[in-house]
Amino acid sequence: MTGALPTGVPAIEAVDVSRTYELDGVSVPALRGVSLTIDPGEYVAVIGPSGSGKSTLMHLLGGLDRPSGGRLVIGGRDVTTLSAPELATLRNRTIGFVFQAFHLLPRTSAVDNVALPLVYRGIGARQRRDRAAAMLGRVGLGHRLDHRPNQLSGGEQQRVAIARALVTDPAVLLADEPTGNLDTGTGEAVLELLEQLNAESGVALVMVTHDQEVAARARRRIAVRDGLIRSDTFHDRPLSGGDGGPATLDPAPSAEPRSASGSGPGHPSGGSGGAAGATGRLPRTSGGPERAPGPRPDAETGSGGAG
């Protein structure tokens, strides 16, 4: 059960979404027309060089920011039609964020940190604590309920943040470099936790990472560069032992560029990029992971590429 999404509806749908910052009268285009769809239960890695617009994209996908142009539908609702409080409620119900910097409230116990999103859902204190405690149990911190952030290790803090992101049972978990502040071993454990939760609860996981190896563990990889999606490809899972996750249903290793969307006239479709030549790809249409029934909205991604 994720985020009260109607079945058959993509968790997030972005069409030609752009985001431009105004800096001292100068327009800085951080995203220049991005189209993608996140389906329930997906595991997506977002990679790209620093400053390419990954975080900007995550903020938009999570309804934390509004696009300067294009259409963005989160949980079936068009964000451009939503007021600020409506957008906040949408975030609360549909999205879970995990940040590189944890962003836990200091001086607040782990269980209260995890319960925070439930506060804004108007849930009573006892039920909040029960749900938060249960969620902390799921991330392996059932014995740390009343610890404060400064009494927890970095890995533990990020687990608390993950529990906080999932306590509302969201449709999508957006993780922006969740292991960026952790050492390799701890980062690996956090990563495995995220993957496990993604497989178990059916929450879609969209994760920004700088680490190619990490990205390679995801079934779908989106490469961002200069505010555009350069490639959006599906893989089987070459790394990390098959644990019965959705990836094992893939018939064959292969990939296809999915939506090199939003290219302006000066930007040829990303499918022709160097990534397209990589091995082990599967044509998207021939056998992705289970999708919601019904026709894929490939037409729209195609139109994005035809620009």
């Binding site: 906040a88 975030r91 925070l116 999103p117």
Partner: peptide, 16 residues
């Protein structure tokens, strides 16, 4: 400010 940002990220409305 960061606390405010975080609270908003998890669903606090401006009024909250």
């Amino acid at each position: 400010t960061r606390e405010i940002g975080l609270r908003k990220a998890v669903g606090a409305r401006p009024r909250d």
